[in-house]
Simulated scan of single mutants.
Amino acid sequence: MTHRFPIKEIARQAGLGTATVDRVLNARAHVSPQTALRVKAAIKELEAQEAQLSARGRRLFFDFVVEAPARFSREVKSAAEAILQDIGPAVCRPRFLLQDVMEEDEVVAALRRIQKRGSQGLCLKARDTAKIREAIAQTTAAGIPVVTLVTDIGQSDRLAYVGLDNSGAGRTAAYLIARVLTAGSGQVLATRSHRDFLGEKERADAFGETLATLRPDLQVISVQGGSGVDFATSKVLSDVVDGLDELRAVYSMGGGNRSILRTLEDRGLRTEVFVAHDLDKENRDLIDARRLDFILHHDLKLDLKHAFNAFLSYHRLISEQATTPISTVQVLTPENIPP
Rank of each mutant, 00 (worst) to 15 (best):
I260P: 05
L279N: 00
V101H: 02
Q330D: 14
V220D: 13
F62H: 03
R58A: 06
L189I: 11
L46Q: 04
L214D: 04
Q115S: 06
S234T: 00
G254V: 05
L300C: 05
G121H: 02
Q224E: 15
E265H: 08
A80K: 10
K201L: 01
T271W: 09
N283L: 02
N26G: 07
S119M: 06
H297Q: 15
K305Q: 12
I318A: 09
R12N: 08
E200N: 00
A212P: 01
A206Q: 02
L149M: 07
R127N: 01
T35C: 11
S252I: 05
I43W: 12
A289N: 08
V273S: 11
D217I: 10
V147Q: 01
D245S: 12
M1W: 15
P89Y: 12
Y251V: 03
E81K: 03
A41Q: 13
A11H: 05
L122A: 01
I43P: 02
I221Y: 09
V65Q: 07
S119Q: 02
D280Q: 00
I114C: 03
R195A: 13
T210L: 04
E75M: 15
E282F: 07
G268H: 03
V223I: 02
G15W: 04
V240N: 12
V31C: 12
A11Q: 00
P6H: 01
R258N: 01
P334A: 03
V31W: 11
N309G: 01
